[in-house]
Protein backbone atom coordinates (compact mmCIF):
# COMPACT_ATOMS: atom_id res chain seq x y z
CA UNK A 1 0.00 0.00 0.00
CA UNK A 2 1.28 3.48 -0.85
CA UNK A 3 1.97 5.99 1.88
CA UNK A 4 -1.17 8.10 1.24
CA UNK A 5 -3.77 5.36 1.70
CA UNK A 6 -1.72 3.98 4.60
CA UNK A 7 -1.92 7.33 6.36
CA UNK A 8 -5.65 7.52 5.58
CA UNK A 9 -6.17 4.13 7.19
CA UNK A 10 -4.15 5.26 10.23
CA UNK A 11 -6.27 8.40 10.51
CA UNK A 12 -9.52 6.44 10.21
CA UNK A 13 -8.42 4.03 12.93
CA UNK A 14 -7.41 7.06 14.99
CA UNK A 15 -10.84 8.60 14.50
CA UNK A 16 -12.51 5.49 15.95
CA UNK A 17 -10.15 5.58 18.94
CA UNK A 18 -10.88 9.28 19.35
CA UNK A 19 -14.65 8.69 19.32
CA UNK A 20 -14.57 5.99 21.98
CA UNK A 21 -12.09 7.99 24.00
CA UNK A 22 -14.19 11.14 23.82
CA UNK A 23 -17.16 9.26 25.27
CA UNK A 24 -15.19 7.68 28.11
CA UNK A 25 -13.26 10.87 28.87
CA UNK A 26 -16.37 13.07 28.87
CA UNK A 27 -17.71 10.89 31.68
CA UNK A 28 -14.50 11.30 33.66
CA UNK A 29 -14.44 15.02 32.94
CA UNK A 30 -18.06 15.46 34.01
CA UNK A 31 -17.48 13.69 37.32
CA UNK A 32 -14.34 15.69 37.98
CA UNK A 33 -15.92 18.96 36.88
CA UNK A 34 -19.10 18.74 38.93
CA UNK A 35 -17.95 16.67 41.91
CA UNK A 36 -14.19 17.36 42.01
CA UNK A 37 -13.75 13.60 42.32
CA UNK A 38 -10.97 11.82 40.44
CA UNK A 39 -12.59 8.49 39.67
CA UNK A 40 -9.83 5.90 39.35
CA UNK A 41 -12.46 3.18 38.82
CA UNK A 42 -13.68 4.87 35.62
CA UNK A 43 -11.89 2.37 33.38
CA UNK A 44 -13.63 -0.46 35.21
CA UNK A 45 -17.03 1.01 34.35
CA UNK A 46 -15.91 0.93 30.72
CA UNK A 47 -14.86 -2.71 31.14
CA UNK A 48 -18.17 -3.54 32.83
CA UNK A 49 -20.02 -2.02 29.88
CA UNK A 50 -18.15 -4.27 27.46
CA UNK A 51 -18.52 -7.40 29.60
CA UNK A 52 -22.24 -6.76 30.20
CA UNK A 53 -22.69 -6.25 26.46
CA UNK A 54 -21.31 -9.73 25.97
CA UNK A 55 -23.62 -11.11 28.67
CA UNK A 56 -26.70 -9.42 27.21
CA UNK A 57 -25.99 -10.40 23.59
CA UNK A 58 -25.38 -14.03 24.52
CA UNK A 59 -28.56 -14.17 26.62
CA UNK A 60 -30.89 -12.55 24.09
CA UNK A 61 -31.66 -14.74 21.08
CA UNK A 62 -32.58 -13.37 17.67
CA UNK A 63 -30.79 -11.20 15.17
CA UNK A 64 -27.47 -9.66 16.35
CA UNK A 65 -28.75 -6.15 15.68
CA UNK A 66 -31.62 -6.55 18.15
CA UNK A 67 -29.39 -8.07 20.82
CA UNK A 68 -26.87 -5.29 20.34
CA UNK A 69 -29.48 -2.55 20.71
CA UNK A 70 -30.64 -4.25 23.91
CA UNK A 71 -27.04 -4.28 25.18
CA UNK A 72 -26.67 -0.63 24.23
CA UNK A 73 -29.59 0.20 26.54
CA UNK A 74 -29.22 -2.33 29.36
CA UNK A 75 -25.45 -2.33 30.02
CA UNK A 76 -25.04 1.43 30.64
CA UNK A 77 -28.17 1.38 32.79
CA UNK A 78 -26.84 -1.39 35.04
CA UNK A 79 -23.44 0.30 35.32
CA UNK A 80 -25.06 3.65 36.11
CA UNK A 81 -27.12 2.02 38.86
CA UNK A 82 -23.98 0.42 40.31
CA UNK A 83 -22.22 3.78 40.22
CA UNK A 84 -25.14 5.49 41.96
CA UNK A 85 -24.95 2.84 44.68
CA UNK A 86 -21.19 3.34 45.03
CA UNK A 87 -21.76 7.07 45.33
CA UNK A 88 -24.41 6.73 48.02
CA UNK A 89 -22.65 4.03 50.02
CA UNK A 90 -19.04 5.21 49.78
CA UNK A 91 -18.26 8.58 48.19
CA UNK A 92 -21.03 10.51 49.94
CA UNK A 93 -19.93 9.24 53.34
CA UNK A 94 -16.40 10.47 52.60
CA UNK A 95 -17.84 13.95 52.05
CA UNK A 96 -16.14 13.85 48.60
CA UNK A 97 -12.75 14.58 50.13
CA UNK A 98 -10.45 14.47 47.06
CA UNK A 99 -7.73 12.24 48.49
CA UNK A 100 -10.04 9.86 50.37
CA UNK A 101 -12.19 9.37 47.27
CA UNK A 102 -9.14 8.46 45.19
CA UNK A 103 -8.19 5.79 47.71
CA UNK A 104 -11.79 4.57 47.80
CA UNK A 105 -12.11 4.40 44.01
CA UNK A 106 -8.82 2.46 43.86
CA UNK A 107 -10.48 -0.02 46.22
CA UNK A 108 -13.53 -0.04 43.98
CA UNK A 109 -11.29 -0.70 40.96
CA UNK A 110 -9.83 -3.81 42.60
CA UNK A 111 -13.23 -5.07 43.70
CA UNK A 112 -14.85 -4.62 40.26
CA UNK A 113 -11.87 -6.14 38.46
CA UNK A 114 -11.75 -9.15 40.74
CA UNK A 115 -15.53 -9.62 40.52
CA UNK A 116 -15.31 -9.57 36.72
CA UNK A 117 -12.47 -12.11 36.79
CA UNK A 118 -14.33 -14.42 39.17
CA UNK A 119 -17.75 -14.19 37.50
CA UNK A 120 -16.84 -13.63 33.84
CA UNK A 121 -13.51 -15.41 33.66
CA UNK A 122 -10.07 -14.62 32.28
CA UNK A 123 -10.98 -15.13 28.60
CA UNK A 124 -11.57 -12.44 26.01
CA UNK A 125 -14.92 -12.95 24.28
CA UNK A 126 -16.08 -11.39 21.02
CA UNK A 127 -19.46 -9.79 20.42
CA UNK A 128 -20.90 -9.80 16.91
CA UNK A 129 -21.33 -6.41 15.30
CA UNK A 130 -24.99 -5.50 14.69
CA UNK A 131 -24.36 -5.32 10.94
CA UNK A 132 -21.63 -6.37 8.56
CA UNK A 133 -21.37 -3.63 5.97
CA UNK A 134 -18.05 -2.97 4.36
CA UNK A 135 -17.22 0.28 2.71
CA UNK A 136 -15.03 -0.35 -0.33
CA UNK A 137 -12.50 2.42 -0.86
CA UNK A 138 -10.20 2.33 -3.93
CA UNK A 139 -7.31 1.06 -1.77
CA UNK A 140 -8.87 -1.01 0.99
CA UNK A 141 -12.21 -2.08 2.42
CA UNK A 142 -13.27 -0.58 5.72
CA UNK A 143 -15.71 -1.80 8.36
CA UNK A 144 -18.95 0.14 8.26
CA UNK A 145 -19.47 -0.56 11.95
CA UNK A 146 -16.40 1.49 12.84
CA UNK A 147 -17.88 4.49 11.08
CA UNK A 148 -21.13 3.85 12.95
CA UNK A 149 -19.16 4.04 16.23
CA UNK A 150 -17.85 7.46 15.26
CA UNK A 151 -21.35 8.72 14.36
CA UNK A 152 -22.92 7.22 17.48
CA UNK A 153 -20.29 8.82 19.71
CA UNK A 154 -20.86 12.17 18.02
CA UNK A 155 -24.62 11.85 18.54
CA UNK A 156 -24.22 11.00 22.23
CA UNK A 157 -21.79 13.85 22.80
CA UNK A 158 -24.15 16.26 21.05
CA UNK A 159 -26.99 15.02 23.26
CA UNK A 160 -24.79 15.45 26.33
CA UNK A 161 -23.93 18.99 25.28
CA UNK A 162 -27.59 19.85 24.70
CA UNK A 163 -28.48 18.28 28.04
CA UNK A 164 -25.85 20.33 29.89
CA UNK A 165 -26.65 23.63 28.18
CA UNK A 166 -30.38 23.48 27.32
CA UNK A 167 -32.15 21.58 30.09
CA UNK A 168 -32.98 22.47 33.67
CA UNK A 169 -31.15 19.38 34.98
CA UNK A 170 -28.03 20.44 33.09
CA UNK A 171 -28.35 23.95 34.48
CA UNK A 172 -28.57 22.54 38.01
CA UNK A 173 -25.47 20.44 37.38
CA UNK A 174 -23.53 23.42 36.11
CA UNK A 175 -24.71 25.53 39.02
CA UNK A 176 -23.46 22.87 41.44
CA UNK A 177 -20.14 22.77 39.56
CA UNK A 178 -19.65 26.52 39.92
CA UNK A 179 -20.63 26.85 43.57
CA UNK A 180 -21.85 23.96 45.63
CA UNK A 181 -22.73 25.97 48.72
CA UNK A 182 -24.81 28.58 46.89
CA UNK A 183 -26.56 25.84 44.93
CA UNK A 184 -27.41 24.22 48.23
CA UNK A 185 -28.73 27.54 49.56
CA UNK A 186 -31.02 27.81 46.53
CA UNK A 187 -32.67 24.54 47.48
CA UNK A 188 -30.82 22.28 45.06
CA UNK A 189 -30.47 18.77 46.38
CA UNK A 190 -26.70 18.55 45.96
CA UNK A 191 -26.55 14.93 47.07
CA UNK A 192 -28.92 13.93 44.30
CA UNK A 193 -27.02 16.00 41.73
CA UNK A 194 -23.79 14.27 42.72
CA UNK A 195 -25.37 10.83 42.57
CA UNK A 196 -26.82 11.41 39.10
CA UNK A 197 -23.56 12.96 37.87
CA UNK A 198 -21.57 9.96 39.03
CA UNK A 199 -24.13 7.62 37.44
CA UNK A 200 -24.11 9.60 34.20
CA UNK A 201 -20.30 9.59 34.06
CA UNK A 202 -20.17 5.84 34.62
CA UNK A 203 -22.95 5.31 32.08
CA UNK A 204 -20.96 7.19 29.43
CA UNK A 205 -17.93 5.00 30.10
CA UNK A 206 -20.10 1.87 29.88
CA UNK A 207 -21.62 3.09 26.62
CA UNK A 208 -18.12 3.52 25.19
CA UNK A 209 -17.38 -0.03 26.34
CA UNK A 210 -20.48 -1.42 24.59
CA UNK A 211 -19.66 0.41 21.37
CA UNK A 212 -16.08 -0.83 21.34
CA UNK A 213 -16.77 -4.48 22.08
CA UNK A 214 -17.54 -5.62 18.48
CA UNK A 215 -14.17 -4.14 17.45
CA UNK A 216 -12.18 -5.25 20.49
CA UNK A 217 -13.14 -8.29 22.56
CA UNK A 218 -14.46 -8.03 26.12
CA UNK A 219 -11.75 -8.77 28.70
CA UNK A 220 -11.61 -8.13 32.43
CA UNK A 221 -8.36 -6.14 32.18
CA UNK A 222 -9.47 -3.90 29.30
CA UNK A 223 -10.18 -0.93 31.61
CA UNK A 224 -6.54 0.01 32.19
CA UNK A 225 -5.68 1.65 28.88
CA UNK A 226 -8.88 3.74 28.54
CA UNK A 227 -8.41 4.96 32.11
CA UNK A 228 -4.92 6.23 31.38
CA UNK A 229 -5.93 7.67 28.01
CA UNK A 230 -9.03 9.32 29.49
CA UNK A 231 -6.85 10.89 32.17
CA UNK A 232 -4.53 12.13 29.45
CA UNK A 233 -7.43 13.56 27.44
CA UNK A 234 -9.05 15.21 30.44
CA UNK A 235 -5.76 16.72 31.60
CA UNK A 236 -4.76 18.05 28.19
CA UNK A 237 -8.27 19.32 27.56
CA UNK A 238 -8.35 21.03 30.93
CA UNK A 239 -10.01 19.29 33.87
CA UNK A 240 -13.76 19.77 33.81
CA UNK A 241 -14.07 21.37 30.37
CA UNK A 242 -16.23 19.35 27.93
CA UNK A 243 -15.13 21.19 24.79
CA UNK A 244 -11.46 20.77 25.69
CA UNK A 245 -12.09 17.09 26.32
CA UNK A 246 -13.49 16.65 22.83
CA UNK A 247 -10.60 18.47 21.13
CA UNK A 248 -8.04 16.59 23.20
CA UNK A 249 -9.70 13.25 22.43
CA UNK A 250 -9.40 14.03 18.71
CA UNK A 251 -5.75 15.01 19.05
CA UNK A 252 -4.84 12.00 21.19
CA UNK A 253 -6.92 9.52 19.20
CA UNK A 254 -5.58 10.62 15.81
CA UNK A 255 -1.98 10.82 16.94
CA UNK A 256 -2.37 7.44 18.67
CA UNK A 257 -3.63 5.97 15.41
CA UNK A 258 -0.76 7.43 13.42
CA UNK A 259 1.98 6.79 16.00
CA UNK A 260 0.99 3.17 16.61
CA UNK A 261 1.13 2.53 12.84
CA UNK A 262 4.69 3.74 12.64
CA UNK A 263 6.20 3.06 16.09
CA UNK A 264 5.95 0.18 18.55
CA UNK A 265 2.96 0.69 20.87
CA UNK A 266 5.11 0.55 24.03
CA UNK A 267 7.37 3.39 22.90
CA UNK A 268 4.32 5.41 21.83
CA UNK A 269 2.76 4.91 25.26
CA UNK A 270 5.95 5.90 27.06
CA UNK A 271 6.23 9.11 25.07
CA UNK A 272 2.53 9.95 25.49
CA UNK A 273 2.62 9.31 29.24
CA UNK A 274 5.74 11.39 29.79
CA UNK A 275 4.38 14.18 27.61
CA UNK A 276 1.17 14.38 29.59
CA UNK A 277 2.97 14.28 32.91
CA UNK A 278 5.05 17.21 31.68
CA UNK A 279 1.92 19.10 30.61
CA UNK A 280 0.49 18.61 34.07
CA UNK A 281 3.74 19.78 35.67
CA UNK A 282 4.31 22.85 33.53
CA UNK A 283 0.78 23.76 32.39
CA UNK A 284 -1.55 22.51 35.11
CA UNK A 285 -4.61 24.23 33.61
CA UNK A 286 -4.30 22.05 30.49
CA UNK A 287 -3.42 23.10 26.98
CA UNK A 288 -6.90 24.42 26.16
CA UNK A 289 -8.45 25.02 29.59
CA UNK A 290 -8.79 28.44 31.13
CA UNK A 291 -6.87 29.16 34.29
CA UNK A 292 -8.64 27.34 37.12
Amino acid sequence: MAFGPFLLLALMEGLVTAAVLALAASGLSLVFGVMRVVNVAHGEFYMLGAVLAWVVTTMIPGPPALAFVAALLIAPLIVATLAALADGLILKRLAYDPEATIVATIGLLYMIQQAALSLYGPNANPVRAPFEWRIQLPWFGYSGYKLFVVLAALAVLLALWLFMTRTKAGLIMRATQVDRTTACAFGINVDRVYMSTFALGAGLAALAGVLVVPIQQAHYLMGGDPLLLSFIVVIIGGLGSLRGTLIAALVIGLSDGVISMFFTPTLAKILATLLVAMVLVFRPQGLFGAKA
Binding site: I90, V103, A104, I106, G107, L108, L109, Y110, M111, I112, Q113, Q114, A115, S118
Partner: peptide, 9 residues
Protein backbone atom coordinates in the same frame (compact mmCIF):
# COMPACT_ATOMS: atom_id res chain seq x y z
CA UNK B 1 -7.59 -8.71 45.19
CA UNK B 2 -11.22 -8.31 46.18
CA UNK B 3 -10.12 -8.23 49.81
CA UNK B 4 -7.44 -5.65 49.07
CA UNK B 5 -10.08 -3.45 47.44
CA UNK B 6 -12.62 -3.98 50.20
CA UNK B 7 -9.96 -3.25 52.84
CA UNK B 8 -9.09 0.05 51.14
CA UNK B 9 -12.72 1.12 51.01
Amino acid sequence: LFFVGAALV
